[in-house]
Amino acid sequence: MNTLAYRSNLRKLGILAVLALVAAAAYMLVDVNFANERLFQYSMRIRSPKLIAMLITAFAIGGASVVFQSIINNTIVTPCLLGMNSLYTLIHTSVVFFAGSGSILAVNTNLSFAVDLILMGIAATVIYGYLFRKTRYNILYVLLIGTVLTSFFSSVQSTMTRIMDPNEYDTLLSTLVASFSNINSEIIVFAVIVLAAVAIVLRKDLALLNVITLGRQQAINLGVDYDRCIRRLLIGVTLYIATATAMVGPISFLGLIIANLSRQLLQTFRHSQLILGSALFGMAVLVGGQLIVEHVFSYAIPVSVFITVGGGLYFLYLLLTRRKA
């Protein structure tokens, strides 16, 4: 069915994959001293965790954004615009705030990550699940409340850091301001496990995404247990965003850019393709961006600045051109 469009999409995805690969290879190999074996190994050891973290982040944010947009049936919303990043930062801060930076919950990176994930899963499901039901998926309300929540979470978080013991804050800060130059690489293994487990547990719900984009009533008509499926997918999205944020910190507009680029390029309803496209775009953009940041701007401008500026403009463009839809 529609095999022509289907195959041309596969070709486009192939090109994207090659692009992402080229970016990854370039990131690993540019400016490497091949002659000196020890220097070579050193660069590899520094670069490979970063590269892996970026690839994981791109996959997590790309996938989560597409799924989230389909759940809420709107393509200009991303989890970040609703404050999921700030919620994660708040939760992470609260754990250190209440348990203390010396406690096992803060010292053991993996344990701290696990606690954050659990709290995040619960909090986000309660808050956003309630929000969606209450507003009946009305996108304007959801966006508005999301914006308010973002500043609310950030304010509470900054209040906590202000009344915190300065030494505690110092320890917290190093895990809080994760960025691509300061990647939280200790949790890579755990993060991969979480992402894979979520994808496996939700595989049946993910297969329903195509139908879910037809809207609640059509989905129910076609035999989807809608509310349950949405709830499960929402938890998945939350965990993906939390994982990405824990590893590299908040990057507001990345999801919006890559999810929409993928939708524009592929013009399909097939989520297997959309998610893959979005993840590949993310890998190309992130790795390519970081490559430029490291070698052209020599770390003067972090990649998140480019993404925020570019993403902001792209967001405005989407808002202004999509009015008819």
Partner: peptide, 27 residues
């Protein structure tokens, strides 16, 4: 009834059908 089984026996069409996706008639 299992929702999926019911979907083979009973279809409903309502007025609120807005789709955000690019979807052809055949699809």
């Amino acid at each position: 009834w299992k929702s999926r089984e019911l979907a083979k026996r009973l279809a409903i069409l309502t007025q609120t059908n807005q789709i955000q996706m690019k979807l052809t008639v055949r699809e």
